[in-house]
């Protein structure tokens, strides 16, 4: 069996160029509600950009450097827009019953992405190395410990928090977004209900 040939066949079967980069769209995709997901996605891109720029100076420089402060401010507001877009997207897809037509996997991956995004956001708040992170770390530890997660994740270990927030979780969320987008484009937008 030629694995490359099999991969080519699978790709042709599941995601053509028109699927991946569509130039046509069903006419019912005609509402601002369809832009909430894109808003979350673009906020995520901005989070990556501001996050990488912040990472260049390490985890502490933005407290005292004006450029760093601006990047930190932008990272903060990108998170706010990200979750606004994400929750609006989730609500919209619920009200459209977007899991119909065999799209349950798309919904489930989206739900897992939502949870991953929340955990990433928590690690971000823990990573601020200021009063808020100090307070949140000591408050959030109790839920983590009660759930048994505290044995392997310590909200007060800023090194672990840093690696999770800057490396592990962006990769998890990025990969999840990739799978989510693949499923969305493979299956095309869900049809309206037959009333």
């Amino acid at each position: 069996m030629n694995l490359t040939t099999s991969a080519q066949r699978a790709l042709k079967r599941n995601l053509t160029l028109e699927d991946a980069l569509p130039t046509r769209m069903p006419v019912y995709v005609d509402s601002v509600a369809y832009l909430f997901g894109a808003t979350a996605l673009m906020s995520f891109l901005l989070l990556v950009v501001t996050g990488v720029l912040l990472a260049l100076g390490g985890p502490f420089w933005y407290h005292t450097n004006s450029v760093g402060r601006f990047l930190d401010d932008a990272h903060f507001w990108s998170v706010q827009v990200f979750f606004a877009g994400l929750i609006a997207h989730l609500a919209t897809k619920f009200f459209l019953g977007a899991w119909r037509g065999g799209r349950w996997a798309t919904w489930m991956v989206g739900a897992l992405l939502f949870a991953s995004g929340i955990f990433t956001g928590l690690t971000g708040y823990l990573l601020q190395t200021n009063w808020d992170s100090q307070w949140i770390a000591t408050q959030a530890k109790d839920a983590m410990n009660a759930a048994g997660i505290g044995a392997i994740f310590n909200t007060m270990d800023v090194g672990q928090v840093l690696m999770l927030h800057a490396v592990v979780m962006p990769l998890v969320v990025g990969a999840g977004i990739g799978v989510h987008l693949f499923l969305i484009r493979r299956d095309s937008p869900v049809r309206p209900y037959e009333d």
């Binding site: 699927d19 046509r24 769209m25 673009m42």
Partner: peptide, 27 residues
């Protein structure tokens, strides 16, 4: 040019011109 899943789902549905990249850049 669309894949089999999209063809099946969108059978009979009128289509409109669309530019994914432009929409992404605008957002």
């Amino acid at each position: 040019g669309a894949g089999p899943r999209a063809r099946e789902n969108l059978r009979g549905v009128p289509l409109k011109p669309y530019d994914l990249l432009r929409e992404g850049i605008v957002v």
